[in-house]
């Protein structure tokens, strides 16, 4: 066990921080039925990272800026009900195609693979610092605006009446959601980051009578999946990110089965 901790110390910490931030935001994503939204943001991040690589900018910061802008734009589209799912669908496939073409033209296949599947085993100290910061922001934001976000999730109209500034809080929520997705991409990749958003939160909400428990169980289950996924990767020659998602999937179906 000691050698596992020594070997995977950074990966474990990065995975758990990703698990905490994405699972907490995921609870709202699941209740608000925004699952597709997280996917779209991750794919925008992929294209933005490709643009950053081509232009010689930091792929992380270019992804961060573009994702925040797009999430705010998607938030506006959803308020105006202009076919949110179709708009996201177009964006989703288009940015994926842009990313693949740009990474291929730039002959950066390695960057492409790490964007798609993440690389929890090679996280650096600066990655850990970003993860720590975003996890702190997510936790603080959710403690400070818990009532507003929960009320808005339950009944938008009534919350707008009681809290005239709620739309501002929601915009902030979208920004933090975009940042946590971009940071999660570094750890588990574009394809699997939405699993971190959706699966633990869905598992935690399957049979709960009070939403509060979801904010405890979702990060807990997600963190357990990180530890088990890394442990499994010692014995199975497969990417740890994918193994973590497999563990999350097993937890989800177990919860579904137990509820019956």
């Amino acid at each position: 066990m000691m050698s596992f901790l020594e070997l995977y110390q950074r990966s474990l910490l990065a995975g758990i921080l990703t698990a905490i931030s994405t699972a907490i935001m995921g609870v709202y994503v699941v209740f608000r039925r925004m699952a597709f939204f997280g996917d779209a943001i991750a794919h925008v991040g992929f294209a933005a990272a490709a643009i950053g690589v081509i232009l010689g900018f930091s792929s992380f910061f270019s992804a961060l800026i573009l994702c925040v802008l797009v999430s705010l734009l998607l938030g506006r589209i959803s308020r105006r009900s202009l076919g949110e799912d179709a708009a996201i669908g177009v964006l989703f496939s288009l940015t994926m195609a842009v990313g693949i073409v740009l990474f291929s033209v730039a002959k950066k296949q390695r960057s492409l693979t790490s964007q798609l599947f993440g690389d929890v085993l090679t996280v650096t100290n600066s990655d850990l610092l970003y993860l720590l910061m975003i996890t702190g922001i997510v936790v603080f934001f959710n403690i400070f605006f818990k009532d507003a976000l929960v009320h808005f999730t339950f009944d938008e109209d009534f919350t707008r009446l009681m809290r005239p500034k709620i739309d501002l809080v929601y915009q902030l929520f979208l920004v933090i959601l975009a940042i946590s997705v971009v940071v999660g991409v570094r750890t588990v990749g574009v394809i699997l980051v939405s699993a971190f958003l959706i699966i633990p939160a869905s598992t935690a909400t399957i049979s709960l009578k009070d939403y509060r428990w979801a904010f405890i169980f979702a990060p807990l289950l997600s963190s357990i999946s990180v530890v088990l996924g890394l442990l499994l990767s010692l014995g199975i020659d497969a990417p740890p990110g994918a193994l973590m998602v497999l563990v999350q999937g097993a937890m989800f179906f177990a919860a579904l089965f137990l509820r019956r």
Partner: peptide
Amino acid sequence: NVVGYLPQRSSFRRFFPIRVYDVVKMG
């Protein structure tokens, strides 16, 4: 000030797991 408001029934998420006490607290 608060004006008491009961929106149309379709406005809330019916399956959100929230306690009655917390629903009333929204007002």
